[in-house]
Design a protein around this nucleic acid. Structure first.
Length: 503
RNA sequence: GGCCCGUUCGUCUAAGGGCUAGGACACCACCCUUUCACGGUGGUGAUACGGGUUCGAAUCCCGUACGGGCUACCA
């Protein structure tokens, strides 16, 4: 049977597209691709209050950058549309009516004020948050307590109402989770969840069941936070007569921050991204940083995300997307939450940068490097020398600017104690020697440099560091003769002369 | 409060009744490099606690503690 795996998002980045949400996408994607099935994205536009302009496109951009594009979605289309819930209101209404007729659900006319009063009146020390459940529902205004005539009258004049599921008393609902095994719930402690809201839009509980059935979803993986409402969904599958077609469930563990669950705030507070890409909230103007703009490769992003709660049982840590598709198994996903470690995430990125061919690296750093540097003819040579020193793509310019700019200042603290007339003469000789050099490669440059030092009875250690300061200004950078080779004869000699004047 | 989920080095994790509990990140030391990184070698460091089952428990069972989630006309 064909596998159809789906993930759902609210059109609001905070509604699920942080690290945890992205990992949910990733696991759904890997499972679908492994079984040659379809990966389906749904958009949860059931709550207009949560809708954020531009968020839907942003979600797709993030998936595209990560290489996790869905096969079916509101923007990609498919044979099971429409894919937006706001366009499926009639469908939800129809199944809701069916549930009411069969006695599995009921109309509730309680106003928000009445609900609030209920929560206040029934609040006790041992029950701080009373629920609309079997013990309360007969004390409220709904089609269970009202006569049929009264109910019809209220409905006839379009009284605002919701439809609630009628949770049975003292039944045990069991769920078989692919990660956690069998889980049991007592229906007495689950409340009568709203299925259809007063505005005619479904809640998640109704939509997830109706959509999954109609769209022939075979596997549904979602965050652990959904576990408590799973009995509602299972009962709905049963009540609607679709139990045999119910998807297989897996509830993924949470991703935690430095203290407690990972939040958008953690990112700002500890200086690491929690979103795949930069997001500017159009309402507040607040910017949340993304891994992309921070200088991460998408390959590294999905690699560390996949390993946050899963491994293949070997000691392998670096996986390509293709390897992940091949080796992923939902059964090996952990049941416990995982704390996000930014240092390790950076390590993954470094590993991926080291594996990147220089031509690919060059393409990746284009947006992180100023034009003045990127367009020089030295760039390819510099990349070869500097690439492996970059942990983030943004590191490149810091690691290479001195190739393109003659030092204006020198680390004189290093120079002073070593500087004397003998060194001055030594470098004058180096200049003379290098001026005659037609080969200009690091090996001969080093050989000649050390020969001159030997002749002058100077230990190479006495002058190597000075040479470095002359070329780059400080104690940093790749091998000093490699730098000289890339700089070229003219610039190298120019820098020595300039430094000689400045020391 | 109730319900549900969870707990192995600081962090991510391996070990599914049987050797000195293995690896990675981070940290430390040494080597390499007369810079800083990379790299190499080594080191510090964990089965939450208490019972039970068993010849034998990180592993199975019970309890406790701790952490997390849910408890909306949000997802």
């Amino acid at each position: 049977m064909e596998k159809r795996v789906r993930v759902r998002f609210a059109p609001s980045p905070t509604g699920g597209l942080h690290l945890g949400g992205m990992r949910t996408v990733l696991y759904n994607y890997l499972f679908a691709k492994q079984h040659k099935g379809d990966f389906i994205l749904r958009i949860e536009d059931t709550d207009q209050n949560r809708y954020v302009p531009g968020a839907e496109q942003y979600i797709f951009d993030c998936l595209k950058w990560s290489g996790l594009e869905p096969d079916e979605s509101p923007v990609h289309g498919g044979n099971y549309g429409p894919y937006r819930q706001s366009e499926r209101k009639d469908i939800y209404r129809k199944y809701t009516e069916q549930l009411v007729q069969q006695g599995y659900a009921y109309y509730a006319f309680d106003t928000p004020e009445e609900l609030e009063k209920m929560r206040h009146d029934f609040k006790t020390e041992s029950n701080p948050s009373p629920q609309y459940d079997h013990s309360i529902r007969m004390k409220m205004r709904n089609s269970l307590t009202l006569s049929a005539d009264e109910t019809q009258k209220l409905l006839g004049v379009n009284t605002r109402h919701v439809v609630r599921i009628k949770m049975p008393e003292q039944e045990t609902v069991s769920l078989k989770d692919m990660i956690r095994g069998e889980i049991h719930f007592d229906t007495s402690v689950v409340d009568d969840k709203v299925l259809l809201k007063a505005d005619g839009m479904p809640t998640y509980h109704l939509a997830v069941v109706v959509d999954d059935y109609l769209m022939k979803i075979s596997h549904a993986f979602r965050g652990e936070e959904w576990l408590p409402s799973a009995p509602v969904h299972i009962l709905l599958w049963k009540y609607l007569g679709w139990e045999k077609e119910m998807p297989q469930w897996a509830h993924l563990p949470l991703i935690l921050g430095p203290n407690g669950k990972l939040s958008k705030r953690d990112g700002a507070k500890y200086g690491f991204p929690v979103f795949a890409m930069n997001w500017t909230d159009p309402k507040t103007g607040e910017l949340t940083e993304g891994f992309k703009e921070k200088g991460f490769l998408p390959e590294a992003f999905i690699n560390f995300l996949a390993l946050l709660g899963w491994n293949d049982g070997t000691e392998q840590e670096i996986f390509t997307k293709e390897e992940l598709i091949r080796k992923f198994s939902i059964e090996r996903v952990h049941s416990g939450g995982a704390k996000f470690d930014y240092e390790k995430a950076k390590w993954f990125n470094h590993e991926w940068i080291k594996r990147l061919p220089t031509e690919d690296f060059k393409l990746k750093i284009e947006n992180f490097t100023s034009d003045a540097i990127y367009t020089t003819n030295l760039i390819d040579k510099v990349i070869r020398l500097v690439k492996d020193r970059c942990t983030l793509l943004t590191d490149f310019e810091d690691q290479s600017y001195f190739f393109f700019k003659t030092p204006q200042e020198y680390d004189l603290n290093v120079v002073k104690p070593k500087w004397n007339d003998a060194k001055k003469l030594f470098f004058a000789e180096v200049i003379r020697n290098y001026e005659l050099d037609n080969d200009w490669n690091a090996a001969t440059l080093e050989k000649n440099f050390k020969e001159i030092a030997a002749v002058n009875e100077i230990k190479p250690g006495e002058v190597l560091l000075l040479f470095r300061i002359m070329l780059v200004g400080g104690k940093f950078g790749p091998g000093v003769f490699d730098i000289a080779e890339v700089l070229g004869k003219e610039e190298t000699i120019h820098r020595i002369k300039k430094a000689l004047a400045a020391f």
